[in-house]
Design a protein around this nucleic acid. Sequence first.
DNA 1: CCAGGCTCTGGGAACATTCCCAGGCTCTTG
DNA 2: CAAGAGCCTGGGAATGTTCCCAGAGCCTGG
Lengths: 337, 337
Amino acid sequence: MNLRAPVTLLDVAQRAGVSVATASRVLNGGDRVPRPELQERVRDAAAALGYTPNAQAQALAKSSTNVVGILVHDIEDPYFAAIANGVMRAADERGLLVMMASTFRDADREIAYLSSLRAQRARAAVMIGSRRTDAEGLARTATEIEAFLNSGAGLALVSQSGMPAHTIEPANRAGAAELARRLVGLGLRKFGVLAGPEALATARDRRDGFIDGLAESGLEPVAVQAGEFTRDGGHAAALELLDSQADLDCLFAVNDVMAVGAMSALRGRGVDVPGELAVAGFDDIATLRDVWPGLTTVRLPLEQMGRRALELAIEGGDPETETFKAEVVLRESTPQR
Amino acid sequence: MNLRAPVTLLDVAQRAGVSVATASRVLNGGDRVPRPELQERVRDAAAALGYTPNAQAQALAKSSTNVVGILVHDIEDPYFAAIANGVMRAADERGLLVMMASTFRDADREIAYLSSLRAQRARAAVMIGSRRTDAEGLARTATEIEAFLNSGAGLALVSQSGMPAHTIEPANRAGAAELARRLVGLGLRKFGVLAGPEALATARDRRDGFIDGLAESGLEPVAVQAGEFTRDGGHAAALELLDSQADLDCLFAVNDVMAVGAMSALRGRGVDVPGELAVAGFDDIATLRDVWPGLTTVRLPLEQMGRRALELAIEGGDPETETFKAEVVLRESTPQR
DNA sequence: CCAGGCTCTGGGAACATTCCCAGGCTCTTG
DNA sequence: CAAGAGCCTGGGAATGTTCCCAGAGCCTGG
């Protein structure tokens, strides 16, 4: 309609012949509603003028917003996308606006974003993804988290314990252990583990859980190869293991993306999966359910976890840890029993 | 530090023994900088008190924000995630905050979010994903877009022409036509097209471009099967085609996700790819580069497109359309020459 | 018929910041 | 030595809302 015309509540009120207080009551807040005739006049005026409330001014006056933040390491990684999706759905249902940032795995960026969120007076934030255990960076993050919480906003962390905030924990250890049991049940014995970076708690937990699971049958992995937590990391680690001439019948990668990279590496070397070497992953990423051979993995309720994280974050209250259990899914990348 | 204590600029100024104007000059704006000694006093006071500027109040006073919005249909779809990733990187480089929403392919949600973004006085927005050509919904969206632009904010659309805003257009027709030529060059002749929904411009363009490309060799598709623009849509459409007993040697799906669904369907029916039936897709989704057999497809510079969309959006100016060209990538899902 | 109470509307302070403008100080130059 | 110029700082208006409080009008009950 009108070019570059910031229509204010005052404009609407004047056109409707009422006070700003009344106009505010009709259009926004619920205080107590004016008489129907006035309501109509105000609404008509607002429509005619093309009024849009200024969310900044509202936030300032109410000193609260309906913005929540999400911090992920990398939105292109389907693992984060799935959790973020759950958060967004839950936010949508509550009429909350989502401010999302990719930290690109950089602790400083993460801190900067959290600080921005605080400046925005965000109502809550959800941080997704396991922290690197670098003491100095960890301390700086902890300080910012504390500041964030002290500002009165809510916070929930997914996959990173040890912070004084709500925490969503996937059952990494238990899931990996169960996977190990099932694989042993399929007759596999000689395992190679494609572990992620040592510094990543999630990767460590899955690796350790798997080793524990094997131990129950008196087994231990033939080889453990660290690597990046990515497709390329899995690819490289698998080649490393192949070249080491280790005698293996199954590869366990600590996430699906790595497992897919590993399968690609095996294919390149002409190794048959699962005939010569079985492969298993972790996460059950939806986008990867159609790879062939279908990847045996451990399913995590990623969207659920995101939803719940948002709920906990806006709920506030005392820090609470919720564990989501994992479920083994056998597919064609491991031998059929 | 201090629990629930909203530290304001006034607090800082008083502690430093200066005026709020001076404190503001030191901590935020660049107006003109006060004398070094005062700067130090102010900075010390801010640090001691744990001051965080109130972004809402700043936005109100300056009547401009550093927030940009992204609207996607579904963040779990790697196509959108890849473009959104580009937008976020570009935003990060410029110190802009990103507010993202998934519309879940619902026009009303999209309109509501755009309106929220306007209320937030967002500096710009990027809308990703092709519009459905439903006249009524289209008109409502157009109205909101106009209102958004009139508020002085910038806007760029990815993959949807015909709106009075900056537009990023992937070369859907040209890319699909080139793919057709290359497939014909490989000796393929009997094509089945897994088209998306008729209402989706992107899907139509790819289908039509492919048909045009075939026509150059005097060919036309043996069958065209519409379906949802998703993995399941591709799966279902492929089964439909198989059941129709059409004589085919290649399937072209209008996006990679559908192609992967189709491959899964073929596998279920024991059809060898590419031996009995070749398959090709469109987009070259990174997460799907490791499927087997490797998917022949058309690569789009998705991250680049996102980056450029943000640039155009914050740049403003007269509506401009930029086309990004596509590149055919031959892999193992089609016969080797 | 009058007073009291209740409901509905309007005035205006408060929210935290920016930015214009004026005033005071110092330094320079005639 | 005095006047003028220029720079730095502070005061205060303005930004667009919300919400508290007071005042006005109407209805009801004594």
